[in-house]
Nucleic acid binder design. Structure first.
Lengths: 208, 208
DNA sequence: GCTCTTTCGCTACGAGTCGTAGCGTATCTG
DNA sequence: CAGATACGCTACGACTCGTAGCGAAAGAGC
């Protein structure tokens, strides 16, 4: 949501150009996809965005923050839907995820961010709050819808339900991420269907 | 497996020091965990490994290759086990995965590598062959063991079985990766148990 | 043991990027 | 119109990059 860069910005003099903001963040994503985190040069981003190098330094204190914002502005289009059945809703969520992760710029930016997160606890926390938790909402909502439709037993234990939401979200998000970001294989509707089946049903042929 | 650096190395003169190799790869992992991919300086790695900077450049043509080898040498300790039940075997595999991904150096190195893989198709292919496929073997073997014990129906369709192995592996690997590498949350035995239950059984309370 | 071959450590080098400071101009507020 | 802030531009020292050239070290092969 176009996180207004962290400067106080008292509304007195010339306001910061929102156009420049968008150009910078888009340029950051493009550059990241082309040259990677290591090759990401502030100077190059500025040049590509048609902006002075100093403007970038004035707004973002570090590469982390810049990339964080560049990614965050791309992740706001996920929507909760109610397609009438749990299976359809899950397939829809998986499809949205896959679409989101299909852009090369998003792939590079996200993984670079995750990599930095392993060294920076504060960044990792921001990633959770800004990226992971909002997405988890989809699962929570979808589960509530399924309950309202009578597809699931009502919860007895609230804590257990929350834990189940966590684990289901980790499974959905992680599996799609692994397939698309690590292996680089496509997520087709057929694959989504098989994956959803695995999630909803016992392992095929398994006798519990 | 200590990929012998890509130089031909005719067995004539002074052989390359294997000790130096190990020191360099260890130093690479440490440095990567501390300063990240962007901050990873060949000079610093050399200094930390007690080796001349030129020695590194003689052996590895690029940072990609260096990090690739640094990671690959850490990933060879996964073992197929037969604990007598499919459930126990799955929990064991998940546990091995989690242990592998628990080291901060491995976390940083893996994610950095994945990030580079999004821009370099050749590197991504190497990642699949060197890292992903060998791990997939665990699932394939575990599934075969379960069939031998009579826990699963015998396969009618070979291709379908291979696809099922793929999807199960993506689910196991991806979920653990997401939880540990992205969210940074621990994978406890209790969590493993719940996750395995989700995999083996239908969604709790779900009426298919 | 001696020679030959290759690697190793060291130093020096130009090229390029880093992040910052200073300054005049542009743009908006009141 | 006056005040305030952002902008673009230039210049700067500090640093890292990857490479080249050297003498010394360390095994291999006879």
């Amino acid at each position: 949501m176009a996180t207004p860069p962290p400067a106080p910005h008292r509304a007195k003099g010339r306001p910061r150009s929102a156009t420049a903001d968008r150009a910078i963040l888009a340029a950051t994503r493009e550059a990241l996809a082309e040259v990677g985190w290591g090759g990401l040069s502030i100077g190059q981003v500025a040049l590509r965005a048609g902006v002075a190098k100093t403007t970038l330094y004035r707004r973002w204190p570090s590469k982390n923050e810049l990339v964080m914002d560049a990614v965050a502005t791309q992740l706001e289009e996920l929507e909760v839907t109610d397609l009438g059945s749990l299976r359809a809703d899950i397939e829809d969520v998986v499809g949205q995820f896959a679409a989101l992760l299909s852009r090369p710029e998003t792939q590079a930016a996200l993984l670079a961010l995750f990599a930095e997160g392993t060294r920076d606890a504060q960044l990792r926390k921001r990633i959770r709050e800004t990226i992971v938790d909002p997405q988890k909402r989809l699962v929570r909502q979808g589960r509530a819808n399924a309950q309202a439709r009578g597809e699931l037993d009502p919860d007895r234990d609230e804590a257990a339900a929350a834990e189940e939401i966590d684990i289901i979200f980790d499974t959905i998000a992680g599996t799609v991420e692994h397939r698309m970001l690590v292996s680089g294989e496509p997520v087709t509707p057929e694959w989504i269907s098989r994956f959803t089946t695995l999630l909803l049903n016992p392992l095929p042929g398994f006798r519990a």
